[in-house]
Simulated scan of single mutants.
Amino acid sequence: MKKIRLTAEQFDGLVSKTRLKEKGIAYARAALVDGRGYSEIANELGIARAEVYQAANIVLKQYEPEGFESHTYTGPAEMFAKIEQIVAKFEGVKIA
């Protein structure tokens, strides 16, 4: 999946819709605006990578680019693994 980069203005607009505290905002900004990796940020700050990922994910849940449609699916992990294999095989080409 391609990493999403946001402008500072986009980020500020999205983060204003969240309840993130200053630390979380800093983590998310470093990843989403500055384009730094989650692990890089976490290692530098001595925190878990998951903390950076979660902060960025909270902001991204507010992001809906033009033409973007989001769906949530549930099911066993095996099913999603098979779906990933099919997507990789066809490289995202619509087959139906």
Rank of each mutant, 00 (worst) to 15 (best):
M1Q: 04
I4T: 12
R5V: 15
R5K: 12
T7W: 08
F11P: 15
D12T: 03
L14P: 15
L20R: 11
E22L: 11
K23M: 13
K23H: 12
G24P: 03
I25T: 04
Y27C: 11
A28I: 01
A30Q: 05
A30W: 01
V33M: 07
D34Q: 10
D34E: 07
R36V: 09
I41H: 00
G46V: 09
G46I: 05
G46H: 10
I47Q: 12
A48G: 06
R49N: 12
A50H: 04
A50M: 03
A50Y: 00
E51A: 15
Y53I: 09
Q54F: 01
Q54L: 06
A56G: 13
N57C: 10
L60E: 06
K61Y: 00
Y63F: 03
P65M: 05
G67N: 07
F68Q: 03
E69P: 01
T72P: 02
T74F: 09
T74G: 05
P76A: 02
A77V: 00
A77C: 01
A77I: 04
E78F: 02
M79K: 01
A81R: 06
A81E: 08
K82P: 00
E84Y: 00
V87C: 12
V87R: 13
A88Q: 07
K89G: 10
F90A: 14
K94F: 04
I95F: 03
I95V: 13
A96P: 08
